[in-house]
Design a protein around this nucleic acid. Sequence first.
DNA 1: CTAAACTGATACTATATTAGTATCAATTAA
DNA 2: TTAATTGATACTAATATAGTATCAGTTTAG
Lengths: 145, 145
Amino acid sequence: MKVLTKNTDYAIRALLALSAKKGSYLSAKSIATEHDIPYQFLRRLLQEMIRHDLIVSKEGVQGGFMMEKDPDEITVTQLIEIFQGKVQVSECMFRKQICGNRARCVLRHEIMRIEQVVQSEFEKVTIGKLLRDLETANQVNQKEK
Amino acid sequence: MKVLTKNTDYAIRALLALSAKKGSYLSAKSIATEHDIPYQFLRRLLQEMIRHDLIVSKEGVQGGFMMEKDPDEITVTQLIEIFQGKVQVSECMFRKQICGNRARCVLRHEIMRIEQVVQSEFEKVTIGKLLRDLETANQVNQKEK
DNA sequence: CTAAACTGATACTATATTAGTATCAATTAA
DNA sequence: TTAATTGATACTAATATAGTATCAGTTTAG
């Protein structure tokens, strides 16, 4: 069971790269090269993120992509929803064979509770938080050298 | 993002059916019919569960499958692991491009923490618990009629 | 004013996973 | 002995994920 697909994984990495250089445009090519993400694949992800107003772009030479939203307001839950669809535990347990009355189906409640937990855990993880964690980790690495 | 695949979903339903008739053998056919699960598909799932010692079988006429383990000791986490592989959030964030030092990679910690949360939430949900919830729900439905 | 470095849009292929079907041999109870 | 069953396994279909290719339009540097 894989929770994050490459889509989401690459998108997170790209956002981290853009957040680290906030205010300036980074080309898809440079992000792809530096972070080892397939170029054309990444371009599609970036365009998707534009559609969701997470980033903006500038065409032409010296163009590229730039953060639009505050990294602290972008959660992993959002990214999962964009690239993997809404978190849902199961569509199939709600059949009448299992629980006669949908509205009262306790299984459903159980499942929806877990859905909530999963979602809210991923909501705690924002791009901003990841970026800060990353910087801290890098500092530790620097000192070691 | 779908957390439970049909595999797991069907397996849970089959286990609930078997738990409800604990001590007697239920044929794959009867379970398939009653719970609207594709017959051959179900058979494979049942065999997989035998291999994991969750259930036992008896061949021949009047044969079928029967619970082996205590339903309270079968967790949804276990079933996910059997049918969907171990819960893992992402294999890809651990590259050196993102976090120079694997051991200290904070992203990794973040991800592993979530992995733990997801797993332990599903561990709280046992077949036994689901069965009791289900019985309660059915009683409520009965009264309404 | 033109060439090169870019994004926008979109179509395409490849691979993996999930879902479902089919078949035949072996076993067992009536 | 035969019909109802599981054991084992091979196969197909559908869907999701991953990755590639192409061409048109925009912009800036020279």
